[in-house]
Computed example of a mutant assay.
Amino acid sequence: MRTMVAALLLGVALASPAVAQPDGKRLPGDYPLGSDSLVHADVAHGRLEGPFEFHAAAFPGTVRRYWVYVPVGYDPARPPNLLVFQDGQRATNPAGSLRVPAVLDNLIAKGDIPPTLGVFVTPGNLSDHYPPNLGMSNPDHRAAEYDALDDSYVRMLTQELLPEVAKRWRFADAPERRAIGGTSSGAIAAFTAAWLRPDAFGNVISFIGSYTSIGYRPASGAMPMVPGGDLYPTLIRKSPIRPIRLFLQDGSNDLDNEHGNWFLANQQMLAALNWANAHADEQGDKGPRYAVRHAWGDGAHSDAHGGAILPDVLRWIWGKTR
């Protein structure tokens, strides 16, 4: 009963109402940040180290930046949980929609989630050094890394970047104590990492995920067809269940273009995950099940709704009521 009540309360929290207008109406896509996403003077702040430049052998000719959030009271003798977030320049932006370091400060201070080390990484850019004028814009190698279904990106994370981070800061090894997240193509990159390496990442945060055909390439000459992210619902239905805990968010006004319809694609993901669980139950399969929650809103291709619910998503992943 306690678990059921907690789930119901979470559902209410994730419903994040949009901003009310003076006439009592609301505008689609208005999702205000709550207190848990704001900086508070009476809350101790972790350190955000970086940005550091990083050249990855998995993607020759590229350079990326990353930041490391070190929680208050970090103790290498007690390695904290790990959160990896794509598009690190936006995830760490103190004026942006996500403000992940502030969320971690507040939730850790309240004891709502365990101490967590954050690693925020940008996509690669095809240059010797990361361009200083990019700001919040996307580096030019983003789609090649994030929208591909192969293991290049997760190999870069697990074999190159995280070992580099581990030279200075320790973090948990157990997949259930690790989460990986992102928005848009960063979300499908996060899912691909967990799909291919559930032993490395047991939790996924997917906001406005691009489960569409961005990565698709038709067969040409001797080159075979390269699939896009719209294949995932099929793969989920036809593959053994991975031990993954996944939160999906999207809005009914998300993109609809030559790559696909984002909102429909996310609904297909949810339907496939739920079907896989139900089918396994029917077959008496004693293996793992997907732990899935979702929040559908009316936003466009924006981080706003995801940012508004991020604190509750992290509570669902690592909170006391899990």
Rank of each mutant, 00 (worst) to 15 (best):
H55C: 03
N266L: 03
R65W: 03
F263I: 04
F52G: 02
I113Y: 05
N125Q: 13
G299R: 01
A200N: 01
A271T: 13
R217A: 14
F263G: 01
V70R: 05
R90H: 02
A189K: 02
V313G: 05
V204A: 01
H259S: 07
F207E: 02
A280Q: 01
D254Q: 02
Q249T: 03
N266S: 00
E258W: 07
H129D: 14
D285P: 01
A166P: 01
V19P: 00
L82E: 09
V39H: 11
Q249R: 01
R155F: 02
L161Y: 10
A6P: 01
I180M: 13
M4F: 15
P288D: 07
L10C: 07
D281M: 06
P198S: 06
K238G: 00
G297E: 09
Q267I: 02
D199L: 09
P60G: 08
K320S: 15
Y74A: 02
E49G: 00
Q21S: 13
V292Q: 05
A174H: 15
G297K: 08
G251C: 03
W275Y: 15
L48I: 11
P139Q: 10
A58V: 00
E258M: 12
G307T: 07
N93R: 04
F52S: 09
I108M: 10
P311T: 11
P233H: 05
L14T: 09
R64G: 01
P227D: 07
V121W: 04
P132I: 10
I113G: 02
N266Q: 11
L48R: 06
P163Q: 10
P60R: 11
Q21A: 14
A6M: 09
A57K: 15
V119Y: 06
G319T: 11
A56D: 13
L270E: 12
F54R: 08
R99S: 10
